[in-house]
Design a protein around this nucleic acid. Structure first.
Lengths: 194, 194
DNA sequence: CGCGACGTTGATTTGCCTCAACGATTGTGG
DNA sequence: CCACAATCGTTGAGGCAAATCAACGTCGCG
């Protein structure tokens, strides 16, 4: 199934392509749709795909030795999601990826990505820049974990993801912030009475 | 000052270059040496350089609103160090970089890096792969902050940096782990009596 | 409607912080 | 090379933020 050109253009909205390049891009991106609750990646799977989120909401999370979930990333429209750590080395996932709100994704395989890099060099620059920004965001998150209280991190979260309403449960947010649902509940209560 | 060819080859040890490419590389890398205690980057500086650590030990750290230091990265031989978040956008640093043990560095400017990307495309792949690995390391660190106790994180640290002996003070390690020096001291005491 | 999933509240515990004091180690000048 | 100061590390007492455990509302969906 070929992916329609308009969606491809939306992914790379700052770049322009020749017809030939467009045809290459159409051949490697595959549109897939998932319902809420679907798990598109499980721990221990070999990670061969990354996903562009055309619409919907997802999260990636790790389950630790005690069985506790830790959300690493939420993904909304125009973001990319995968277990990048495993994707970069085509190795086994330590993450799970779950659909929180019905999603339309454009799938890209590791192999096709290398092929794209070779065929369309500006794609490599594009992804490098994406990665640079994601890296910076991770650094910010590490610093925030080191220097801020749970309340401050929650306020930051609300500001960073202002529109993640219905689809995200409180315990998803708690597992992203590194606290329990009970603590998050108390933080919300405290904040609500100014 | 031209940087000697052998050091260049050490940086890119998996790649081979033509004489022409070598001459380009020599023209953009600059060797610099610093003494222990030197601060090579201060918060609010515009970040235009990144550094390959040929020898020595450094750390990058952020000072938060309360004046507390948070170590983001230690750098030893064959690592790269900078405030990447700022370097990627040539903007103001939020980090400080300090020399912990006399260091020999190879400096590369943001501008020259773009020039390298254009002149020697495989350099872009090289740095992309470096970045992918650093990204994965950051993700691991976020997970470790979310799921592990200070004691577990300390044990991980010891395993990850087994040879950071003399140059790194306990309070550097504490600020990397996100705990106080007192807590680290107690953790060490606890671990020492098996 | 009723059940299961989700969120809240309370009581208690725990890990780490803060503040304070005191050893140990390092570096430096006489 | 020693003496002393400064820096660094350790220990103790007390406090606080968040975890744990447990119980109880509430909401949404089959």
């Amino acid at each position: 199934m070929k992916t329609d050109t308009s969606k491809i253009k939306e992914i790379f909205k700052d770049l322009t392509f020749s017809d030939f390049e467009i045809s290459i891009l159409e051949s490697v991106f595959h549109k897939v749709t998932y319902k809420k609750g679907a798990v598109i990646l499980k721990a221990n799977d070999i990670v061969t795909m990354q996903y562009y989120i055309y619409d919907g909401c997802l999260r990636s999370y790790h389950i630790d030795a005690q069985g506790k979930e830790h959300t690493v990333q939420f993904g909304i429209k125009d973001w990319w999601i995968s277990d990048y750590t495993a994707f970069f080395t085509t190795s086994k996932s330590i993450m799970n990826i779950e659909v929180l709100k019905d999603a339309t994704l454009l799938r890209l395989s590791h192999k096709d990505k290398d092929y794209l890099y070779a065929q369309i060099p500006k794609i490599e620059s594009f992804f490098r820049k994406k990665l640079e920004r994601a890296f910076a965001a991770f650094q910010k998150r590490i610093l925030s974990g080191l220097s801020q209280t749970a309340t401050q991190r929650y306020i930051n979260f609300i500001n960073k993801y202002p529109n993640i309403e219905r689809s995200v449960k409180n315990y998803h947010i708690a597992s992203y912030l590194g606290i329990t649902t009970e603590s998050l509940s108390r933080i919300r209560k405290e904040l609500s009475r100014h």
